[in-house]
């Protein structure tokens, strides 16, 4: 047994925030926003009232999830130094979160498209801020091919 094994603490205490996994990716919000887009498309193409009702319920749920993921990026991933370097991120996240509410209450596919564009702008900043390497795990080469 090494000395370090003896000295090593037996108890772990957390001094930082909420069990942070450190994985943040705007793609998570985008997938939910894409769901909203596709659901509105399907809603408009359908004449089945029951289907349409379900579509609305699911779209509202997905819009709420998109909002949640944007909030997490904004409050947990982006740090003061990112905001200093990319001051536009504050407004981008704020507007995108508001746009989620719009999509939640609307069946206008244009609103869903606007949300996708807004999330893409957030993703641009996330990429510039080093997000892909800082927060994501590399995939195995075989899986990427």
């Amino acid at each position: 047994m090494f000395l370090t094994d003896l000295l090593k603490p037996k108890t772990i205490a957390y001094a930082h925030c909420d069990l942070p996994c450190g994985v943040y990716d705007p793609e998570q919000a985008r997938i939910e926003a894409e769901s909203c887009y596709k659901i509105i498309e399907k809603y408009n193409a359908s004449s089945d009232d029951q289907f349409k009702t379900r579509a609305i319920v699911i779209k509202e749920e997905r819009a709420e999830l998109a909002k949640h993921h944007i909030d997490v990026l904004w409050s947990d991933y982006f740090k003061p130094e990112h905001v200093q370097k990319y001051p536009e991120i504050t407004e981008l996240c704020w507007k995108a979160a508001k746009q989620c509410s719009k999509v939640k209450g609307s069946l206008d596919i244009g609103e869903a498209k606007t949300l996708l564009d807004m999330i893409d702008k957030i993703a641009d900043v996330w990429t510039k801020a080093g997000g892909p390497t800082a927060t994501r795990m590399p995939k195995a080469a075989a899986a990427r091919a």
């Binding site: 957390y14 925030c17 909420d18």
Partner: peptide, 27 residues
């Protein structure tokens, strides 16, 4: 079962307020 290390900001009436040193990131 989860333990935290935080700084004491206030002690009163049998409870204390614990704050992290980095308010913008601390839970």
């Amino acid at each position: 079962g989860r333990l935290v290390l935080k700084r004491v900001a206030r002690v009163k009436g049998g409870v204390c307020t614990l704050l992290g040193d980095r308010p913008e990131e601390s839970t």
